Amino acid sequence: MLLLVDCSSCRTPLQLPAGATRIRCSVCRAFTLIAPDPPPHSHAPASHLPFPSSSSVIPTPTSFINPPSAPSPFNHAPPGPPPPVHGPKRAVIVGVSYKNTKAELKGCINDAQCMKFMLMKRFQFPESCILMLTEEEADPSRLPTKNNITMAMHWLVQGCKPGDSLVFHFSGHGNNQEDYNSDEIDGFDETLLPMDYATSGVIVDDEINATIVRPLPYGVKLHAIVDACHSGTVLDLPYLCRMDRLGQYDWEDHRPPSGMWKGTSGGEVFSFTGCDDDQTSADTPQLSGGAWTGAMTYAFIQAIERGHGTTYGSLMNAMRSTIHEIFDKNKGRELVEVEDGDLLTTLLGLLILGAAPPDEEVNQASQKTQEPQLSATEEFAVYGKAFSL
């Protein structure tokens, strides 16, 4: 059985293989030494052991997938609005291209690089506080494997406090699977696919919620930007904003029928996703004029760059408008030409300007037009609430 032990340096939970005597943290790279359990007849007190005993480690499977019940949502937060986001900023950015496989994507690395650039230049995120996981990283601990992504999510929320602003961005494949614990209205769990999903499995929305949503204390704000197929409710948040083409909206209640609380311990979470749970997201060169990007990531950054990120409602409308420009509703997923299309000259343009025109056709599949989604831990007026990272 895999066990969890806290890193001796940064306290990130690490998955400890059976029999291991030391493990290296993929976040801070420090080694944690594990002492064997004392012999059965030893009377030495635990405090005399030179390193943490493996007997004190918590089993992994149930702690990630079925965590203890969260506090009641009606008594966990002090009165009044949370303090403004002015404290430390921290981000995890994941771009998975599935290189040299049949599932290869072409825009995810660009998505990750553009998101990092935007967070640093537009929202003053320190580079030292941005953890990048892509296949282009030289350090094996920075590859977007299931284990590395899981540990990065733990690092993101570790020790967060009021005033902190956190960002989780994922660009890659998403999927869905049958829900076995009856906490989904539609009967399906949403999943993210790490680069080693074929051998290590997928990351299920239940695990994502338990890791980066439910632990958040009062005053902490988390924004997730997930550019993947079937990603509409991938954070399992209680409320989904249903918005039509005219910008009118209603909040849809996604709280589990079982009554399980899928919100936070007082913090705020907002999730922007590439499409609804039954849709797929495009990986396309049509928006940039040459380089491949995820349609949703491009539309998100473009909306902010053009000054449409004042409120959550204005940001969503701008994103949807950009994506509707390239999708012909009568032809499913077929991409069409954009009149007067221009490449951003400040954010995306600095990274992908000058890319060669694509020499491959975009994969087409008959389906509904991709519709970016917004979900949150609480209902709110989307045109009245200011957006900030």
Rank of each mutant, 00 (worst) to 15 (best):
A46M: 10
A46W: 07
S47P: 00
S47I: 10
L49R: 14
P50T: 09
F51M: 11
F51Y: 15
S53H: 00
S53L: 09
S55P: 00
S55C: 13
S56N: 12
S56L: 12
S56P: 03
I58G: 04
I58A: 13
P59L: 06
T60D: 09
T62E: 13
T62W: 10
T62H: 12
S63P: 00
F64C: 05
F64T: 06
P67M: 01
P67R: 01
P68S: 10
S69T: 14
S69C: 07
P73R: 08
P73L: 08
N75F: 14
N75A: 15
N75E: 15
H76C: 12
H76Q: 12
H76F: 01
P78G: 03
P78T: 06
P79C: 07
G80M: 10
P81R: 14
P82E: 01
P83F: 05
P83G: 08
P83I: 11
V85E: 03
V85F: 03
V85R: 04
G87V: 02
G87N: 07
G87L: 03
G87E: 01
P88C: 10
K89D: 04
R90P: 01
A91C: 06
I93D: 00
V94T: 04
V94A: 05
G95Q: 07
G95I: 13
G95H: 02
V96Q: 01
V96S: 05
S97M: 05
Y98F: 15
Y98G: 02
K99W: 06
K99R: 15
N100I: 04
T101F: 07
T101G: 09
A103K: 05
K106L: 12
D111S: 12
D111T: 09
Q113W: 04
Q113V: 12
C114Q: 12
M115A: 09
K116E: 14
K116T: 08
F117Y: 13
F117L: 13
L119A: 03
L119V: 05
M120G: 07
M120L: 08
M120V: 15
K121D: 08
K121N: 14
R122D: 13
Q124L: 11
Q124N: 13
F125W: 02
F125G: 02
P126A: 07
P126R: 08
P126Y: 06
C129R: 13
I130V: 15
L131Y: 11
L133T: 03
T134S: 03
T134Q: 04
E135I: 01
E135N: 08
P140H: 07
S141N: 11
S141G: 15
L143G: 00
P144E: 03
P144V: 01
T145Q: 01
K146C: 03
K146D: 01
